[in-house]
C-alpha cells in the first residue's frame, strides 16, 4: 500500500511536467493548428540558460524567473520571425520549420554547453519529505510549482481581458478581428507563454533526468500523449491528460512486469495510438456543445 501511494505521488510529480508540456503544445495547436514538436527542445534550451545563469552566480529563484522571462521573449520572437511569415503556408512548410527549430536548438545547446551530462540543482532538496519515504522534497516542490502555475494560467484565461482575447483569437479568429482583437499578436503571446511554461517544466525535471541536449525527448512524447488524451484542443483536458499519463506510466512501470522501466515510453506511444484510433477527440475534446 505504501509503495502504491508512493508510485501515485511520484506519478503526479512527473505528471505535472507532462501536463505543462501538454498545455504548451495545446496552446500553440489551438492558435496555428500544428503540433510544435520543437517544444521540448525549446524547453531544454531554456533549462540550459537557467543552468548558465546559476553557474554565473545568480541565486536559484532569480535564475528561475529570469529564464521564464527570457523564454517568453524568445517564444514571441520565434513566432514573429519564423511562423508569422508561414501563416498561410502549407503543412509541409510548418513541419520543415519545426524540424529546423528542433535541430537548431539541439545542436546549438550541444555546441555552446557540449553534450556531457550536467547536474541541475533543485531548490527543494532531494531528501525524502518528513523522512517518510512517501515522497521526496523535490517531487513535492514539482507538484506545488506546477499546480501554482496551472492555477495562475487558469485565472489568467478566465478572468482577464487579454486572456479572453487570446481565447477568442484561438477559437474564432475572424470574429475576433471583427471585435478588434489583434489576432496576430495574440498568437505571438501564446507562443511566448508556451515557451515560458516549457521552461518551467524543463527546470523542474532537469534535477531528475539530468541536463543534456536530449533530456526532453521522452518528456515531449509523454506531453504529446497527455495532449492527445485531452483532445488537443482542450487546455484543461491536456492538463488532466498529462497528470494521468504520469500516473499510468509510473504504475505500469512498477506493477506490470513486462513493462518495467525500459518499456515505459512504449506505453505513452501505445496510449497515443489507442486514443487516436478509438477516441480521436480525446477524453475531453468533445465537451463543447454547439447548436447551429
Amino acid at each position: 500500500m505504501e509503495l502504491f501511494a508512493h508510485q501515485i505521488l511520484s506519478g503526479l510529480a512527473t505528471g505535472g511536467i507532462y501536463a505543462c508540456m501538454a498545455l504548451a503544445i495545446v496552446m500553440i495547436y489551438q492558435a496555428i493548428h500544428h503540433l510544435n514538436f520543437a517544444q521540448g527542445e525549446m524547453a531544454m534550451f531554456s533549462t540550459f540558460i537557467a543552468w548558465q545563469l546559476i553557474e554565473w552566480g545568480f541565486p536559484y529563484w532569480i535564475a528561475f524567473f529570469l529564464t521564464i522571462a527570457i523564454s517568453f521573449v524568445g517564444g514571441v520572437v520565434i513566432e514573429r520571425t519564423v511562423f508569422k511569415p508561414l501563416h498561410r503556408a502549407p503543412v509541409l512548410a510548418h513541419i520543415v520549420a519545426f524540424i529546423a527549430l528542433f535541430a537548431i536548438f539541439n545542436s546549438l545547446a550541444g555546441f555552446i554547453w557540449d553534450f556531457t551530462i550536467k547536474s541541475f540543482p533543485t531548490p527543494f532538496g532531494q531528501q525524502s519529505l518528513f523522512g517518510s519515504g512517501l515522497i521526496s522534497a523535490h517531487d513535492t516542490g514539482m507538484i506545488v510549482v506546477t499546480l501554482v502555475l496551472l492555477g495562475l494560467l487558469f485565472l489568467f484565461f478566465r478572468h482577464t481581458r487579454i486572456g479572453l482575447a487570446m481565447r477568442a483569437a484561438a477559437s474564432n479568429p475572424d470574429s475576433a478581428r471583427l471585435v478588434g482583437v489583434r489576432v496576430g499578436w495574440m498568437i505571438a503571446l501564446g507562443w511566448g507563454m508556451a515557451a515560458a511554461i516549457g521552461a518551467v517544466a524543463g527546470m523542474l525535471i532537469a534535477p531528475v533526468v539530468f541536463l543534456e541536449p536530449n533530456m526532453m525527448l521522452a518528456i515531449l512524447i509523454y506531453g504529446f500523449a497527455g495532449a492527445v488524451v485531452g483532445g488537443l484542443i482542450s487546455p484543461g483536458g491536456a492538463v488532466i491528460g498529462g497528470f494521468a499519463v504520469g500516473v499510468v506510466e509510473n504504475l505500469a512501470g512498477t506493477y506490470v512486469p513486462v513493462v518495467g522501466q525500459e518499456m515505459k515510453l512504449t506505453i505513452a506511444l501505445a496510449l497515443i495510438v489507442a486514443v487516436l484510433m478509438f477516441k480521436p477527440t480525446g477524453l475531453f475534446g468533445a465537451r463543447l456543445v454547439t447548436r447551429v
Binding site: R161, L164, R167, A168, S171, D174, A176, L178, V179
Partner: peptide
C-alpha cells in the same frame, strides 16, 4: 457578419465583453 460570428464556446456575457475589447 453573415452566420452571426458567435464565440460559441464562451458565455453570453463573455461575448459581450469581447465586443468592448
Amino acid at each position: 457578419p453573415q452566420g452571426r460570428g458567435t464565440f460559441t464556446a464562451m458565455t453570453v456575457e463573455e461575448n459581450l465583453q469581447l465586443g468592448a475589447m
